[in-house]
Nucleic acid binder design. Structure first.
Length: 508
RNA sequence: CGGGGCGUAGCGCAGUUGGGAGCGCACCGCGUUUGGGACGCGGGGGUCGGCGGUUCGAGUCCGCCCGCCCCGACCA
């Protein structure tokens, strides 16, 4: 490819991302263009992404994957995808003869494997296996990953300077993206239920004020959070967690079928029969009540009385209020106890690059015995944008990028300088004749610009042909992070071809 | 929905008594330069988010509207 005709300018400045962020270098190297929430994969970036996808697809060969184009669903929205999936399975998986199958869809920013198996457990195992193979590829490209789990999903997390918050246990290695992380829950002592008693609590409209006023720990209170679903007919959702904990909106959203949630306003709250500031699940109506699984185990809580200035003591789940759903809906915080070993979790920043999970379905197929069994469905995916951003962050060197040879968008960066134009053309052809891909800087620009761009783009080899190199007997050849040497012109192409034969085991 | 912030050149921004529409990067032309993001001179580019008001005069003051970002829980 001639740089003279290439679309995409390297950038001097990237106000958007600081230099320790991999995305900074993707933008500067003209791999990405970013505007607001929109990301373009420029020609260089698209080649990089294509190479990554090729490498990832290659390792799934043992699953005999078949390519499909599926709707692009965000990971959090998988639950709302259920109806469409049911329709697909009912039509195309009538019996055991049609299982197992592995489908690959490669939409925009995500490579997804859809695993259909004879039971949910087998599907999950296969998806996890594919995920493991993909993680091995990414690790082979220099990306360190640590495993995360939570909400029945597995994650491969790549540490990143400006990643998303994740929680990790330094003792046992448990980790998960923060909204999905779980924590060990306390086991409250059994107590005899006390009678439901109203108590005047003027001005105690926050948990903290309430706990102080009554002289009790926040853990003895129930916190009510009102939300509204983002649907054509919004539902009011009433989430209850213990006063010292916080609600995880993603967990709640998944329970409710993947709908979006937003804070409810005062009118919504009053319409359900509750009083803001003194609200509780007692006697509310026309609302979906979801309580954290710790609440039924916690006797004699203090909760709002749905009356201005009053709370109840002795609130007990089951007797005083019921829920439509009971599940883990708290968001673990740094310092909370690890669900596996109880040691404090610590916050780390990471991008969730790989992910796998089973999908719930009630579609059945006929077994060889003629009985109905549930189709197992699971997905594994790689977020290509985060993968590339994390790879860039780890491929970054002082003055630009340094891609591993397997991944680089081109094999050789060829630069023509003054006095070397014609010979550079010949080298360009010779390199291509050896099967190498070449990015050829034939622009009218100063040497400094060309060298700087080569550093920003970060190909494994740089070949410079100019008056000076010719005087010294050939072309200057420089590995991205090594010393430059002068090679005789006729040796350049064959030697680089030989190097790549050794350092890249794919035929692509 | 409520609270806060921001809308000025392609991008990032400055603009305090209310009177000049500017700076950096990018872009175009000419010349010099040519192995580490060169320099000089010249140039193009704007509904200052929109509408209305105050004023001799509004990017600037007032009102309304639109758009984007952050915050929202019994959250400090």
């Amino acid at each position: 490819m001639r740089l003279r005709a290439q679309f995409g300018q390297t950038q001097r400045q990237v106000p958007r991302y600081p230099p320790e962020d991999g995305r900074h270098w993707l933008v500067r190297g003209a791999y990405w263009h970013v505007f607001g929430d929109t990301r373009w994969w420029l020609p260089l970036g698209e080649r990089l992404r294509a190479r990554l996808v090729t490498l990832l697809e290659a390792v799934t060969a043992s699953q005999a994957p078949q390519h499909v184009a599926f709707p692009d669903v965000a990971r959090a929205d998988l639950a709302s995808f259920a109806d469409a999936l049911t329709s697909l399975l009912e039509a195309h998986v009538p019996s055991y003869r049609h299982l197992p199958r592995c489908l690959l869809s490669h939409t925009g920013e995500r490579l997804t494997a859809w695993v259909l198996a004879s039971d949910p457990e087998a599907a999950r195992e296969t998806a996890a296996q594919i995920q493991g193979q993909w993680e091995a590829v990414l690790e082979g490209l220099g990306l360190p990953l640590f495993p995360g789990e939570g909400a029945e999903a597995r994650w491969g997390l790549a540490p990143a300077a400006h990643g998303q918050e994740a929680l990790r246990c330094p003792a046992c290695g448990y980790a998960a993206p923060q909204p999905w992380a779980t924590r060990e829950k306390p086991h409250p002592e059994d107590e005899a239920p006390q009678p439901l008693t109203p108590v005047a609590t003027p001005h105690a409209s926050t948990i903290q004020a309430l706990a102080e006023f009554l002289g009790i720990p926040e853990s003895q209170t129930a916190k009510a959070v009102f939300l509204r679903t983002q649907e054509s007919h919004p539902r009011l959702v009433f989430a209850v967690v213990r006063g010292d904990m916080q609600v995880s909106l993603p967990k709640l959203s998944r329970l409710l079928g993947g709908v979006g949630l937003e804070p409810a306003d005062e009118d919504d709250i009053r319409r359900a029969g509750a009083v803001p500031g003194y609200a509780s699940p007692i006697q509310v109506h026309d609302a979906v009540v979801v309580v954290d699984d710790l609440i039924p185990l916690s006797p004699n809580l203090v909760a709002g009385a749905n009356r201005e200035g009053y709370h109840f003591t002795g609130v007990n789940y089951g007797r005083d209020f019921q829920a439509d759903m009971v599940a883990d809906i708290v968001a673990a915080q740094p310092g909370d106890p690890c669900p596996h070993c109880g040691r404090p979790l610590e916050a780390v920043l990471a991008w969730p690059v790989t992910h796998s999970r089973g999908l719930a379905t009630d579609v059945t197929y006929l077994t060889p015995e003629g009985k109905a069994a549930t189709v197992g469905v699971a997905v594994a995916d790689v977020d290509l944008a985060w993968a590339v951003a994390a790879l860039a962050e780890h491929a970054r060197v002082e003055d630009g990028l340094a891609w591993p040879p397997m991944l680089a968008p081109y094999d050789v960066h060829l630069i023509a300088l003054r006095g070397g134009e014609e010979i550079a053309e010949a080298v360009y052809l010779a390199l291509q004749d050896e099967g190498l891909t070449v990015l050829y800087d034939d622009r009218k620009a100063s040497p400094g610009v060309k060298f700087t761009d080569a550093d920003l783009i970060g190909l494994p080899w740089r070949v410079t042909v100019g008056k000076r190199s010719l005087k010294q007997g050939g072309a200057e050849v420089k590995p991205r992070q090594g010393e430059a040497e002068i090679w005789p012109l006729e040796e350049v192409a064959p030697r680089l071809r030989a190097w790549y034969a050794e350092h890249r085991d794919d035929a692509a």
